[in-house]
Design a protein around this nucleic acid. Structure first.
Length: 609
RNA sequence: GCCGACGUAGCUCAAUUGGCAGAGCAAUGCUCUUGUAAAGCAUAGGUUAUGGGUUCAAGUCCCAUCGUCGGCUCCA
């Protein structure tokens, strides 16, 4: 790529190319749908989109793009790019713009917001009212736009552009407003880059955790059980239990205490905590029993708080770190469900730390270091932290401004002390407090929010939590909510895609497959398997009536780390012929030697075989 | 929830303008006894997501419901 990696995207050639591609695509749409009203069409990561309002069909329903329409639009778009035209920049006063865009209601709305000094075309707040707006024109296509663009349409190579899909999208991202028709496209410097990108999309599809989950027998979603309620198959359950026991061990070492709480609780519990109003729209309907209402728990915190309150607490009890792999239920909208990464019932590797105010910083740093330990063990090196703060203009957040300020300051101080750099994003907080999220970039450069740490002054107040301090007086503790994995479902989904199903040895559901060459070697294979199992290795014996080659192929497709081929030679010498899923043939080695090596790698949670 | 596409055997997919539902893999049985990514033969497997409708005739056309996928909104 010709761009300097440090250059902001907004100043790059690709940004101009994509922005210009969006304009020419809109020009093409206007050729097929002259009545289409234009909304916005910005560049995005890897491409661009443009939103259109196509009016209504004869039945009064909003018109939409058919797949055939998209094909036509792409052909026209390429023709228009090649036809070449200059992008000319100019500006109009607000009054001129109002008049010029009189028939473009969405553009008018943008102009009014700019004139009022509210937000720019991307919805970002602007500091002061705008008096002149930018205009870009090529041929007869004129758009309200601050650019930048390429000089000529030909600079967007027709063979480096592709229309990808269309979908509905709400105007201004607001589901209460009109739903527009969005067309997504992608554009690159040249055809080779486009092909590379399309290949990457294909790769991402091939390692989709839903596809691999089926192939590798990890999980199953049954229509009869319900959407978004995954069933963990034996191999998936092994993987999950390995992760859980790893974290349990790390928590024991750090003084966490286990607790177990039920899956439902009285509605009043969540009214007290404040979860009910905030999560109302995404909760299962309350269960009515004997004039009482119960809720499937949407969060574990209130239950853990009741454990804190089960007895009087002293400063000597603090910090109290209660941990549970707690399953919660949220009624996500049907269109939001996605394999394991977006479900309706999921298990949080949850913990709530009840700390004295003066312990907050140290405990927070301890949690950050635990999360770093978890990521490091997984072999995740590419991640960043994000400080999510409240949006003062939103009513989504509870509690007094001082509490928020205190929480944010505490996180900043702790993060700085821990040497953790982070970005700040307003409106990314939990309703009860600010949080530090850990965002992981997988091998395909996709970002996923995993671990989270949240500081909470609100719930201790709501539940009137207290402890007796050295001074003999009641003091209020502070809570830290945290989850290094986030949710077991999402984490495993991401793990599947990151490793493409070839998990590190310690996580592999089957670590070794025994491959006897003929029937007469099955007994020896079983003997070896018994020995390996006794040492804690997960082994399967492939005693099927198949050729060795087929057994290797099957094990390979299941991404089993080690295949141990045994025939006459191995049986005579007490050896195993080691083959790895990386197609590496290590030849015959003594069983004891293989076992020692494998158990070492398992114990050290090595990523490499 | 909204917009669009889709739903055929356990899996991956065929089935001409509406005209006898099919293949490969997997499964099961038999034969072969095999040295580093697919042995051969045979058998079984379906109310074409569900419910209505149009038609002499529906996998195919129409309506509704459920589900999946891609987005939007939302989110661990």
């Amino acid at each position: 790529m010709s761009e300097n990696d440090n250059m902001p995207y907004e100043q790059s050639d690709l940004y101009r190319i994509r922005h210009s591609a969006a304009h020419v695509m809109a020009e093409a749409v206007r050729e097929h749908f002259p009545e289409a009203k234009l909304a916005i069409g910005p560049p995005i990561a890897d491409g661009f989109y443009y939103d259109f309002d196509l009016g209504q069909d004869e039945n009064g329903k909003p018109r939409t793009f058919s797949p055939e329409d998209l094909e036509k639009i792409e052909i026209t778009m390429k023709k228009l790019l090649k036809k070449n035209a200059k992008f000319e920049q100019s500006s109009k006063t607000i009054a001129e713009a109002r008049e010029f865009f009189a028939d473009a209601p969405y553009k008018l709305e943008l102009i009014e917001e700019l004139a009022a000094g509210k937000v720019d075309e991307n919805g970002n707040p602007i500091s002061e009212p705008v008096t002149e707006v930018g205009i870009y024109q090529h041929r007869n296509f004129v758009d309200l736009c601050r650019g930048p663009h390429v000089g000529f349409t030909k600079q967007v190579k027709a063979n480096a552009v592709k229309i990808l899909r269309s979908s509905g999208a709400y105007w201004r991202g607001d589901e209460n407003r009109a739903q527009l028709q969005r067309i997504y496209g992608t554009a690159w410097h040249n055809k080779a880059e486009l092909d590379t990108h399309l290949k990457l999309l294909g790769e991402a599809k091939a390692r989709d955790h839903r596809r691999l989950g089926k192939q590798l027998g990890l999980f199953h979603i049954s229509q009869l059980v319900g959407s978004g309620l995954p069933l963990w198959l034996p191999k998936g359950a092994i993987l999950r239990e390995e992760l859980e026991s790893f974290l349990r061990q790390a928590q024991v070492e750090r003084g966490y205490l286990p607790v177990i709480t039920p899956h439902i609780g009285k509605l009043d519990l969540y009214k007290t905590s404040g979860h009910y109003p905030y999560y109302k729209d995404s909760q299962y309907t309350p269960i009515d029993v004997d004039d009482e209402q119960f809720l499937l728990k949407p969060m574990n915190c209130p239950h853990h708080i009741e454990i804190y309150r089960s007895q009087p607490r002293s400063y000597r009890d603090l910090p109290l770190r209660l941990a549970e792999f707690g399953t919660v239920y949220r009624y996500e909208q049907s269109g939001e469900l996605n394999g394991l990464t977006r479900v309706r019932g999921f298990t949080v590797d949850d913990s709530h730390l009840f700390v004295a105010p003066e312990q907050l910083e140290e405990e927070f740093i301890g949690v950050v270091s635990l999360i770093q330990h978890v990521f490091q063990t997984m072999g995740f090196s590419d991640f960043r932290a994000r400080l999510g703060t409240n949006d003062p203009n939103s009513d989504k957040y509870a509690g007094a401004p001082e509490m928020w300020a205190k929480g944010i300051a505490a996180i900043r101080k702790a993060a700085d002390k821990a040497g953790m750099s982070y970005t700040v994003e307003e409106g990314e907080a939990a309703f009860y407090g600010p949080k530090l999220d850990f965002i992981f970039r997988d091998v395909l450069k996709r970002e996923w929010q995993l671990g989270t740490v949240q500081v909470d002054f609100l719930l201790p107040e709501r539940f009137d939590l207290a402890y007796t301090a050295v001074d003999g007086q009641k003091h209020r503790p502070v809570m830290i909510h945290r989850a290094p994995f986030g949710s077991m479902e999402r984490f495993v989904g991401i793990l599947i895609e990151h490793f493409n199903g070839a998990f590190p040895l310690w996580l592999s559901p089957v670590q070794v497959v025994m491959i006897p060459i003929t029937d007469r070697h099955v007994a020896y294979a079983n003997k070896v398997a018994t020995e390996l199992r006794a040492a804690g290795v997960r082994v399967e014996v492939d005693a099927s009536n198949e050729r060795m080659n087929k057994k290797i192929r099957n094990a390979q497709l299941q991404k089993v780390p080690y295949m141990l081929v045994v025939g006459d030679k191995e049986e005579e010498s007490g050896a195993v012929a080691v083959r790895t899923r990386e197609n590496e043939d290590r030849g015959a080695i003594p069983l004891a030697e293989f076992l020692a090596g494998a158990t070492d790698l398992i114990a050290s949670k090595a990523v490499e075989l």
